[in-house]
Design a protein around this nucleic acid. Structure first.
Lengths: 197, 197
DNA sequence: CCTCATGGTCAACGATCTTCGGCATGCGTC
DNA sequence: GACGCATGCCGAAGATCGTTGACCATGAGG
């Protein structure tokens, strides 16, 4: 068998280059030649790993969204499992772009939103409001109220839905630089105080 | 003076063509040639009214966002001024894409979000959270509570902030087809019931 | 030594955006 | 009425981009 290279490592490096260029020049500004320069490889090599520019961009986007989801899940697992309220707050804070890497991934996700309009497949990639997440969040809300001694009320699933919508909206604002992460956090905490109090 | 044509009418027609193509092929799929065909003019004419492709797309986006804002303001003015609560609900419902034209404009606005990451000027075009709007909304919330006999509580500005973030987030979901306008309306009304009750 | 699959490169092609020079039209002026 | 010229519009050349296909290098197996 001939030379064996780590495809995953190559593709990751190219995806990183696409990320950098996307944040600097926008998705439309991502060209094969610029990606090659940014990644320090020949343009031919870029074409070797991705059949078309569309494949390249799509894979880079996919990796960004998955990396962001992985970070969110990691912060969920890292949260204190003893307190439902801290866990709830930590989960929602994870999409607020409070560290540079999260900000970068969040900005990339926002950059994809535009494509999702004309490309239904992209819309599926995003879609954070999966059923299980809402169930899980609704459970956290109920448990957090119990901790506080607050009586249950309203519809837990809709409450959870609202929480995630608010958090992601605040995250988008932060990604666009229209709102500081601190301000976003303040608004989110305010909402949770009302929800649980 | 030589022949005089209505520049505004020409540009509007070209912008309409850009809108149609954007919703069908995405922003990257908008080419001068396709715009010319869609608008029924020559490519030279497109170039005559816009120096670069960038100018064309930028102006079309700008018009879409302004048209959406105009519709929102119109629905605010059309709301019953006698009841603060109906007015509040009507204002927020205006961004939920409940009619085809609003859906189209909202989808276009979402398509712009991606550009806003690498193009700060675009971010300014969006920015719905202007100070006056929040003040106005906070006033509506307070008045609606008074109508209901609900005592004032919390921070009106943050409440207004949350309302708009929730509404726009639900609108984006609707624009992406991830949520039906009816469901979005249900969630928004649920939040307002909690807020005012 | 030969085979050939894998990794990688390069040049040419069509499509695209941009630039620039040119043509037509019709109001203002003499 | 004729000329001037700014406006509206067109089309071809130049530059850049994505795509295609042929090509070369390497190294494990027969």
């Amino acid at each position: 068998m001939p030379k064996i290279v780590d495809h995953e490592e190559r593709r990751l490096r190219l995806a990183e280059a696409v990320w950098t260029l996307t944040l600097r020049d926008g998705l439309e500004g991502v060209t094969l030649r610029k990606v090659a320069v940014e990644a320090g490889v020949s343009m031919g090599q870029v074409q070797h790993y991705y059949a078309t520019r569309e494949d390249l961009v799509r894979d880079a986007i996919d990796r960004a969204v998955r990396a962001l989801n992985a970070r969110i899940e990691a912060s969920i697992k890292a949260a204190d499992p003893a307190s439902a309220e801290t866990m709830l707050r930590e989960c929602l804070r994870a999409v607020l772009a409070r560290d540079p890497e999260s900000l970068r991934l969040l900005q990339l996700s926002v950059a994809v939103l535009g494509r999702a309009i004309a490309d239904p497949a992209m819309a599926d990639v995003l879609a954070p409001g999966s059923g299980e997440l809402l169930d899980f969040t609704a459970g956290l809300i109920a448990a957090a109220r119990q901790e506080r001694g607050t009586p249950a009320r309203g519809n837990g699933l809709i409450d959870a839905d609202i929480c995630w919508n608010l958090a992601t909206s605040l995250g988008v604002d932060a990604a666009l630089g229209q709102r500081s992460p601190e301000d976003a956090l303040k608004v989110l905490d305010y909402h949770l105080d009302n929800l649980l109090g």
